[in-house]
């Protein structure tokens, strides 16, 4: 027996990561932390650029309602724009929540996978909702202004004539175009896709055991929705509505096309004229001198802070409610 000696060198085993791996991890970690950095920079730079505006007005920036950035005595404040944004968002959510919940339920609970054997209702609806999220806001705005508005004024007139004793529905000018209501409806339509797709995701995490249990006890679909789907989805639904609220507060272009800027604080949702932070920035950009720009950036900072808080809270709620189920 010849003895051929082949030297076998064993692979070195090491629990250390290779240099490439460390570089890879560093790169990925850098990208992850990059999101923090961007968010931080947004806040920082808006604050720096907004200093002249805050210096000019001090805390009155949050209580003034006018927007006079030129002349010897500039007075401006974000209050009326802020209330306007909130009013538009409330109307928008009032429109969006029922429709979005219904659509999410329809897709999850009712829609047959195929109708007549070939129309994929469920997939089609899901795709259509996604498409709605991708349709540019400028098109929503144009549609709202040129198509929806003429069909809305009739309803507005009727409401203010017969329900005018309710302060919200009062209209002192008799003009019903460019009102909060129309903006709210459009913003609501724009919020629908995000609320729908998140709610659908939340509903689809309903445990099957409970659902089948309820059905085997003879529950109708309505009962299953009420007693099984909703209780499990409560947190997620609230979270997705809040994310929709953030979207509604920040909508600029659609509101800017429809609304005519008016600076007095105004709770009459049918009356012409209104205000919103995002629309104010879009409409007044480039006018009002350097102080005007600074003031708009300050308004942007306020908007950023509000939406950031809302979104942080909302995404925590959504993540927590989904993490339980997964």
């Amino acid at each position: 027996m010849t003895n051929t000696t082949t030297t076998v060198t064993p692979i070195k085993i090491s629990s250390k990561r290779s240099a490439e791996d460390r570089a890879f991890r560093g790169l990925a970690r850098g990208a992850g932390l990059g999101t923090f950095v961007i968010l931080f920079l947004i806040g920082l730079f808006l604050l720096i650029e907004a200093i002249p505006a805050f210096r000019s007005q001090g805390l009155r920036f949050f209580t003034n309602t006018g927007w006079q950035t030129t002349g010897p005595h500039p007075t401006f404040g974000v209050l009326s724009a802020l209330t306007g944004s909130i009013i538009i968002s409330i109307i928008g959510l009032a429109v969006a929540i029922p429709v979005s919940l219904a659509t999410a339920l329809f897709i999850n609970e009712y829609a047959p996978a195929k109708v007549l054997g070939f129309v994929p209702v469920k997939n089609f609806l899901t795709a259509a909702v996604d498409l709605m999220a991708a349709v540019p806001s400028i098109i929503y705005g144009m549609w709202g202004f040129f198509v929806l508005q003429p069909h809305t004024t009739g309803l507005e007139q009727w409401l203010s004539t017969y329900l005018g004793f309710i302060p919200v529905f009062k209209s002192s000018t008799g003009l019903y175009t460019s009102s909060f209501l129309i903006c709210g409806i459009i913003v609501g339509i724009m919020c629908m896709p995000i609320i729908t797709s998140l709610c659908r995701e939340v509903f689809s995490l309903t445990p099957n055991g409970e659902r089948e249990g309820a059905m085997s006890l003879g529950a109708s679909r309505a009962r299953v929705i009420r007693d099984v789907v909703f209780p499990f989805a409560k947190g997620g639904v609230i979270g997705s509505i809040m994310l929709g609220l953030g979207r509604a507060l920040g909508e600029a272009i659609a509101v800017a096309i429809i609304i005519s800027l008016a600076f007095p604080i105004n709770f009459h949702i049918l009356q012409a004229g209104g205000n919103s932070i995002a629309a104010l920035i879009a409409l007044n950009w480039g006018s009002g001198g350097s102080l005007g720009t600074s003031a708009l950036l300050a308004a942007g900072l306020v908007l950023f802070a509000i939406t950031l808080i809302i979104n942080m809270v909302a995404s925590r709620i959504v993540n927590a409610s989904m993490a339980d189920r997964r």
Binding site: F45, G250, E251, A252, A278, I281, G300, L308, S315, N319
Partner: peptide
């Protein structure tokens, strides 16, 4: 998630 909800116009002013 919070960033995805940041208004587009804020990205612009930033």
């Amino acid at each position: 998630t919070a960033m995805s909800g940041t208004p587009a116009i804020v990205a612009g002013v930033f």
